[in-house]
């Protein structure tokens, strides 16, 4: 008698388990997004809004643009997130990019620094170490201290590719977060660094580039040069799943623009 009870119990447990697993499968699946670490804020805000509207969960894996693009290609996620335009060879593999927003990268200096306007070329020469003293660009006589991000960072990749200084930057410090860059530049009168415009605070001074002040308007109309797109990466010849398609339509809609703006970047739509 006792034994049969135990057996029954086991059976019931197994069935409950199976039911749970099956229910999990049958349920509307969430949307998986992988990619650029720089896009976490935007995707976080959009995902939250989307969930409260539809009840579908959006997951986000911050793995870097390259890894996100790779993940779409291998079908490991629904939508890839890239903070640079797709390369031609990536497009040739059947991928398609849709610009979600534009992110301006501000070049920041200490507020006490008299320099307030530099050209992209000058900025590039400064970061390559060709210009070593602030007096050469109209500032005080002080050695320029270059503050950058660690290898692999989306902001560093964006900055270096826009200014064409890849692998040539002669950094004094390679910090691992935007906040650290801001703190360090705020604490050193001779420092220069870069950060997403959205995260620039009062404690540092963003430079004008070629006479253009970085702002939402100048980024959107393209006159501020140090900017990069936030791209949604999908497969060209393969339709998205139902919930992924809904998410895609939602984030590219006009209503989503305010949410995107609240994350500090400029919506493309």
């Amino acid at each position: 008698m006792k034994k049969s009870f135990k057996r029954m119990g086991c059976l019931i447990l197994c069935m409950v388990f199976l039911c749970g697993v099956m229910a999990g499968c049958a349920q509307n699946e969430g949307v998986a997004t992988d990619g650029s670490t720089s896009m976490s804020k935007v995707i976080g805000a959009l995902g939250e809004a989307f969930k409260s509207e539809t009840g579908i969960t959006v997951t986000y894996n911050a793995m870097g643009s390259g890894a996100g693009i790779q993940a779409v290609l291998e079908g490991r996620c629904d939508i890839g997130l890239s903070s640079r335009d797709l390369k031609d060879e990536e497009k040739a593999k059947g991928l398609e990019g849709t610009v979600l927003a534009y992110d301006g990268i501000a070049v920041v200096v200490n507020p006490s620094n008299p320099v307030s306007d530099l050209s992209v070329q000058t900025i590039a020469s400064i970061f390559k170490g060709e210009i070593k003293n602030w007096s050469e660009v109209g500032g005080n006589d002080a050695e320029i201290v270059l503050i950058g991000r660690e290898a692999g960072s989306g902001t560093r990749d964006g900055f270096e590719s826009i200014t064409e200084t890849e692998d040539q930057c002669d950094y004094r410090q390679e910090l691992t977060s935007t906040g650290d860059v801001i703190t360090t530049v705020a604490g050193n009168p001779a420092a220069i660094g870069y950060a997403s415009l959205a995260s620039v605070k009062e404690s540092v001074k963003p430079l004008n580039v070629d006479g253009i002040t970085p702002s939402e308007a100048t980024i959107k109309d393209g006159s501020y040069l140090i900017q990069r797109p936030f791209v949604l990466v999908t497969k060209r010849d393969q339709a998205l799943g139902e919930s992924a398609q809904r998410f895609f339509d939602y984030v590219t809609s006009k209503e989503a623009a305010t949410i995107i703006a609240s994350a500090g970047v400029v919506a493309a739509q």
Partner: peptide, 19 residues
């Protein structure tokens, strides 16, 4: 000079290094 330790070499790049 600015330097990097064994520990920080692992910590600072691990997040971005692809599988």
């Amino acid at each position: 000079e600015s330097v990097r330790f064994l520990t920080t070499a692992v910590a600072s790049e691990m997040a971005y290094a692809s599988e």
